[in-house]
Design a protein around this nucleic acid. Structure first.
Length: 553
RNA sequence: UGGGUCGUCGCCAAGCGGUAAGGCACGGGGUUUUGAUCUCCGCAUUCCAAGGUUCGAAUCCUUGCGACCCAGCCA
């Protein structure tokens, strides 16, 4: 938000807003809203909408409300509202006002009476099933309900009695009187109020009739003075209805609905039903499992708000259905963490090295830079001693060509420390390597050895000084790019999406790691503390691996 | 001949009648005490297709083709 303001690419919504500002269409105001239904957790797709709505307001010194579309109490809850507020705030956005569609229930009711009085709405006694039958099909026009020409007086009476609770759930419905022959099915006398005796999380039992989305949303927008009502493509067909309602009623203003394509991210699923299934069937640990595409999951995995916002900016806003590759999201988090994460060393699969020519009890507190490019990050102390641990992978008896790590008889640099040479490989009775005997060159601290150069650089920790840790390696949750297209998305859950390593050793400085900090474990990836971590049992999550251009085996 | 929307590089995406931006990915060189970062270079004679208008078309017109959305008293 701070760095790219002037270079932000334009997209069609920015152009519309800029043009409206120029022509003074809305008195020079820009007011948007993010209108989630509190019936689930926010996910990366919502992040796109959040960034668009809040971003549009911010860029134009306008306002953006957070409005809960809470018109269907059966599915909604306060718990979801709280999680949504937490996630929006975490992303770094501040809503101008917190609103609820339910704040407008009385006004919505009065507007409905207005519609009835203008002979533009009627109470229908057809059942849900009958209404479906009367609606017609995509190619066949619908038929008018027998109740369509009920008198205004009778409609008024029935509607007030609907509110008063005189009828059973489903017995009556209030419908807009538009056009049963419209090629746009949304205009075939859509239901705008239904009777539902459900306790509402905010209005309690004050109402037994609840307004429907199409009727509620446009009026809520108008009440809040929204100028640009941004929504996803599937609502394009609803725009004529949005406009119809506002055209017929004396509302404070008539916002412009503009549709954009929702985000589709490869290797993820975003349907609430499916996400819920992953949770309840224990394919993941919860809504905030680091493999989940939820904001909570991304947060726990170590993603930063800035990376997510950068991602949303990069993918653009258009009306094209498109699939974004994971690589884009990964690039964004790597870019952020590369410049902002402290470096540290952690050995995931330890292999012991004894430096035979290093004094038995000597310990050197080496000063190591916290960031190779940012000196202002300072230095930390990393103890060095005779017995150290390196990554199993960093030693090979039969190295492939161009191998840059440790091999017998060859030299390698221990990051931030000395150059060592491997002299001998110790194996157990079944032939597994259990220890390496090496010698170090005491003249190589902070400088290259005389006349030669180590083949590569590997990371390490001192055995006695390091801390044990559990490290969780996460990978994509699905094995195919579009799990939604699969007969059963559960069949393509990646069985290796979580690998828990329990014998890891991390450098001593990580004992004081905090939930807020991110780290690059040098040469292995970006990590953060998991919220289950304790002082006696450090747990780190891998956010993303380092980019790997190398010819690793 | 139901309605709506959309087709520009492997994936995104600018372009708005004056001769194809940019990002990701990918390939190659350089620097490097992270096979990271950084850096340099390469990467659409062509814009779904075919016609047409024009000095000039990805942009305008016509006709096709393909994809997505809509028949909840969900949002």
């Amino acid at each position: 938000m701070q760095k790219t303001e002037l270079t932000q690419p334009s997209h069609f919504i920015r152009q519309i807003v800029a043009n409206d500002l120029q022509t003074n269409k809305h008195d020079g105001k820009v007011v948007t809203r993010f209108p989630p239904e509190p019936n689930g957790y926010l996910h990366i797709g919502h992040a796109k909408s959040i960034c668009l709505n809040f971003g549009t307001a911010l860029e134009n010194k306008g306002n953006c409300n957070l409005r809960f579309d809470d018109t269907n109490p059966e599915k909604e809850s306060i718990e979801y509202m709280e999680s949504i507020k937490r996630d929006v705030a975490w992303l770094g956005f501040e809503w101008t006002q917190l609103r609820h569609a339910s704040d407008y229930f009385e006004q919505l009711y009065q507007y409905a009476i207005e519609l009835i009085k203008h002979n533009l709405a009627y109470v229908d006694s057809l059942s849900a099933e009958e209404i479906r039958l009367y609606r017609g099909t995509l190619t066949q026009p619908g038929r008018e309900s027998p109740d369509r020409n009920r008198s205004i007086e009778e409609n008024l009476d029935l509607f007030s009695r609907m509110r008063a609770g005189e009828f059973a759930d489903g017995q009556y419905v209030l419908r807009a009187k538009i056009d049963m022959a419209s090629p746009n099915i949304n205009l075939r006398d859509p239901a705008i109020y239904r009777i539902r005796r459900v306790h509402h999380q905010r209005t309690g039992d004050a109402w037994c009739i609840y307004p429907m989305y199409d009727y509620t949303h446009c009026i809520s927008d108008a009440i809040e003075g929204i100028t640009h009502s941004l929504c996803t493509l599937e609502f394009e067909d609803h725009r004529p209805l949005y406009d119809w309602v506002l055209d017929k009623l004396q509302t404070p203003c008539h916002p412009q609905q503009i549709e954009f394509a929702r985000l589709q991210l490869e290797y993820t699923i975003v349907s609430k039903r499916k996400l819920n299934q992953l949770v309840t069937e224990k394919h993941v640990s919860g809504w905030d499992d680091p493999r989940m595409p939820t904001i909570a999951g991304l947060r726990r995995a170590g993603f930063t708000p800035q990376a997510i916002k950068d991602f949303c900016e990069r993918i653009g806003i258009t009306k094209q259905n498109s699939w974004i590759e994971m690589g884009v999201l990964e690039y964004c988090i790597r870019e952020d963490l590369n410049t902002n994460a402290f470096r540290a060393m952690a050995v995931l699969n330890p292999l012991r090295i004894v430096i035979t020519n290093y004094p038995d009890d000597k310990v050197e507190n080496l000063e190591v830079s916290n960031h190779p490019q940012r000196d202002e990050f300072g230095k930390r102390i990393v103890p060095f001693s005779k017995t150290i641990l390196i990554e199993c992978d960093d030693f090979s008896e039969n190295p492939p060509p161009k191998y840059k790590r440790l091999t017998q008889g060859e030299e390698v640099r221990l990051r931030g420390a000395y150059v060592i040479r491997c002299d001998e490989v110790i194996k157990n009775e079944v032939g597994e390597i259990i220890e390496l005997l090496c010698t170090y060159d005491e003249n190589t601290l902070g400088k290259n050895p005389e006349g030669r150069k180590a083949k590569g650089v590997i990371h390490w920790v001192s055995q006695v000084h390091s801390c044990p840790a559990e490290i969780r390696l996460y990978d994509r949750l699905f094995t195919v790019p579009q799990p939604d297209n699969e007969e059963s998305f559960l069949d393509v859950v990646n069985p290796h999406s979580l690998q828990i390593l329990r014998d890891c050793r991390v450098e001593a400085s990580l004992h004081s790691a905090t939930l807020e900090n991110r780290y690059q474990f040098e040469r292995t990836g970006y990590f953060c503390l998991d919220l289950e971590s304790t002082l006696d049992n450090l747990v780190f999550n891998r956010t993303v691996t380092l980019r790997d251009n190398g010819e690793k085996d």
